[in-house]
Simulated scan of single mutants.
Amino acid sequence: MPLAISWIMATTAVAAEDWAQDQHQILASPSNQSSIGRLEVMASQNCNAVELRLWAEISKNPKTVLKDTETLALSFLLSDMQIASAGQLLKTYQGINGKTNLVYIRLGYWAWDVVNYLPKNSEKTNFTLITEDYELASNNTWPVGNLSDQLRHLKSDCDSDFLGTLL
């Protein structure tokens, strides 16, 4: 049975925060740099696209066992535009207290031109995760902030690294 997840672009009056690039060429969401509740954006292996992944802590549902290869039903939106309708559960870990699971989800890929559609240095726009079947026990909002600028830097770094390799 697929887990249903919805993403909604929410608007709030929070200050813009900066996305940070870590040593593994991953842009990490600014509101939570730890693994729990972390939204990640990274270049695909061949630098042709941007991959989105998410760490989330969810309450355990005794009726449903999550399998690491499960496809998750979801709706990922940017404002009113749907970006994805499915995600892949990459890994599930038991939470510290035994009442939650930490899940790692691949949300899919964006073309690099997504930078043209993201708000620039937005102080008011957040990504928000809403689940239908599970209660979220971790952060579920991430500011857009300077993501478009950071994606431009990530692509530039990726292109220069990729040009020096043999295929």
Rank of each mutant, 00 (worst) to 15 (best):
T128Y: 06
Q94A: 15
A43Y: 04
L74H: 06
T100L: 07
I83H: 02
Y117S: 12
C158D: 01
K67P: 02
I5L: 14
N140F: 11
P30G: 03
W19K: 02
E132G: 10
R106A: 15
S160Y: 09
H153D: 14
S160P: 04
S148G: 04
A10P: 09
V14Y: 10
Y93K: 14
T69G: 15
A28N: 15
S34F: 06
L166D: 12
S156V: 07
N101H: 14
N61C: 06
S29L: 06
E70L: 11
S79K: 14
S138P: 04
L66S: 05
D133S: 09
D18A: 14
I36Q: 11
L66T: 03
K124Y: 10
Q94C: 07
Q45W: 07
G164S: 13
P30L: 01
S59E: 15
W19E: 03
G98I: 03
T64L: 15
A20Q: 14
L118Q: 02
A84N: 10
F76R: 05
L3R: 08
A28F: 06
G87Q: 01
F76I: 10
L151D: 00
A137Y: 04
V115S: 11
Q94M: 09
T125A: 10
G95D: 01
A73V: 10
S122R: 06
L72R: 02
Q94S: 15
K124E: 12
W55K: 02
I96P: 03
L136S: 05
G98D: 04
Q23F: 08
Y109E: 15
G164N: 13
G108L: 01
T131A: 14
Q82E: 13
G145P: 00
A84D: 07
Q150S: 03
A43I: 05
C158I: 01
